Computed example of a mutant assay.
Amino acid sequence: MTEAKRLSRCLIEAIGCSRREAELYIEGGWVTVDGEVVDLPQFPVQNRQVQLLPGAKAEPPEPVTLMLNQAPGLDETAALASITPQSQAAAFDIGKRVLKGHFRQLRCLAPLQPGATGLQVFTQDWRTARKLTAEFGKLEQEYLVEVQGTLQADGLERLKRGVAAKGQALPPVKASWQNETHLRIALKAPTPGVVAQLCTAVGLTVVSLRRLRLGGVSMGKLPLGQWRYLGPQERF
């Protein structure tokens, strides 16, 4: 019985490239085994057809940032586990080849408010990670807040000026009604629970909280539980 070989070895023998080139081709999603893309250089191959796709480049794959419309009841770990090739939003397909490597070493550096759903960001791109780490406090976050209760007189103006709750001064925010039961609130560097405190201070109780935007990046009409790639022209 013939012993299985590593995919990288099979590619080296097939096209005469170096080991490093073989690894780059494979990790970049340019190599198929019996017609299916395999991006693991150590993948065992035995009596199967290995091919290099047209246009292949022996370059490291570009790191990615993924935007998820996080469903209710998920923490960061469960939200990350929900990101699979099958849960990509078809309507937001920008033509980027989906690689298994895109789901490795993802970090969440822009946490949602406690109990919130909506826009969650996972990245393996050091440039995005640096931006979110160094400037997170400067990025405006916009939430759609479902509320119940009766807004106090001049409640929106008070939110815009800044209110006090239990002797603590809360920051001024941008606030407007989207409809009879939903407020849009935008603020920078929200501390845990601050949106609920803001609403309570003007007579409202938060029913649900959904992040719509982080800095200059909006979730748009991304379906619940699905994800998309950060576009090349989008900037936080």
Rank of each mutant, 00 (worst) to 15 (best):
F92L: 05
K100T: 08
F92T: 04
T77Q: 14
H102E: 07
P111L: 09
G73K: 09
T77V: 13
A110L: 12
G101R: 07
K96Q: 14
L109Q: 08
L112C: 07
T77P: 05
S87F: 01
L112Q: 05
L112P: 00
G95D: 08
R104S: 06
A78L: 10
C108S: 15
R104I: 04
A91M: 11
R107W: 00
A89S: 10
T84P: 03
G73I: 13
K100H: 03
A79S: 10
L106N: 07
V98S: 07
S87D: 04
A90C: 00
L74W: 00
L99C: 07
E76H: 02
T84N: 10
Q105S: 12
L80V: 06
S82V: 07
K96A: 14
P85A: 02
Q88T: 08
I94K: 14
K100C: 11
A81M: 03
G101T: 12
D93R: 10
Q105Y: 10
R107E: 14
L109E: 03
V98L: 08
S87G: 01
P111T: 14
F103H: 09
G101I: 07
L99M: 03
T77E: 12
T84F: 02
L109N: 04
G101H: 04
V98D: 06
E76R: 07
D75V: 09
A110R: 05
A89E: 03
K96N: 09
G95N: 07
D93V: 04
L99N: 06
P111S: 13
G95R: 02
L112I: 12
G101V: 11
S87P: 04
Q88M: 15
Q88F: 12
L99R: 14
R97K: 15
A91C: 10
I83R: 03
A90M: 04
A79Q: 02
A78Y: 00
L80C: 11
L99Y: 00
A79D: 03
G101M: 02
A78W: 00
A91I: 12
D75M: 06
Q88V: 11
R107N: 11
L80M: 13
A79Y: 01
T84D: 03
A90S: 07
L112W: 02
L74G: 06
C108P: 08
C108H: 09
D75R: 09
V98G: 12
